[in-house]
């Protein structure tokens, strides 16, 4: 595989891992029903990162940085030239795991498939140049299966993949653009522990998702 291919694989692995992390970590709110196609729910989300395409890919060549950004949540193993396996887990415990296999199709395009059969999931990511030299659009498409009862109770594998995807794209953008994802959850306040927990629940709702 070319050098670019490796870098691209790392980007994809990172992104897919972050999706997994989003899925296992956060409590999600339910949203409107996504589109359905041949029995799959389909969501498409995009974010613009203010860096040229090579820089977006290049950010992830630094394996150390990638591990620092995502490492405590996930392990990555290269299976062969084009395929990777990632296992994401909830860093605060609970034993939730998410396994995916990632395949690099070409530099700038990859797809992944979730292995655990309870929530079949497939995803695709493509990078395109944004107009006016405004950087790179990361476009993601996620397909997942889930019965109506599971959806009703918000049980799509424990949360909502669409929200996890949006959250992830935002995290990736922030990491590439400014090297950190801002968090104000442990800022001081005059709240009691119980009030703080209630506020944290509200914060989480305001942190994930966004425009429907």
């Amino acid at each position: 595989m070319t050098n670019n291919g490796t870098r691209w694989a790392l980007l994809g692995v990172g992104t897919a891992t972050a999706v997994g992390v989003g899925r296992v970590v956060a409590r999600r709110r339910r949203r409107h029903q996504p589109d359905r196609q041949d029995g799959w729910y389909v969501v498409r989300r995009a974010v613009t990162v203010d860096r040229p395409r090579d820089a977006v890919i290049g950010f992830w060549t630094d394996r150390e940085r990638l591990d620092r950004a995502l490492g405590e949540w996930a392990t990555l193993d290269q299976l062969d030239e084009r395929r990777w396996r990632c296992v994401a887990r909830d860093p605060s415990g609970g034993g939730t795991e998410w396994r995916a296999e990632i395949t690099v199709d070409e530099p700038g395009a990859l797809r992944w498939r979730v292995e655990d059969t309870s929530t079949p999931q497939e995803g695709r990511i493509e990078l395109t140049d944004a107009p006016q030299g405004r950087g790179t659009e990361i476009r993601a498409e996620l397909r997942y299966r889930s019965g109506p009862v599971r959806r009703l109770f918000g049980l799509v594998g424990g949360d909502e993949p669409d929200l996890a995807l949006r959250d992830t794209l935002r995290r990736v953008k922030a990491l590439v653009e400014c090297g950190q994802v801002i968090d104000t959850r442990s800022d001081p306040s005059g709240r009691s522990p119980a009030q703080e927990r209630a506020t944290d629940r509200m914060r989480e709702k305001l942190m994930t998702g966004g425009r429907a």
């Binding site: 203010d50 953008k173 653009e177 994802v181 801002i182 104000t184 709702k205 305001l206 942190m207 966004g210």
Partner: peptide, 10 residues
Amino acid sequence: CDNSNPQPVF
């Protein structure tokens, strides 16, 4: 700024 509001949903 795109990245400085960690609670953008509101």
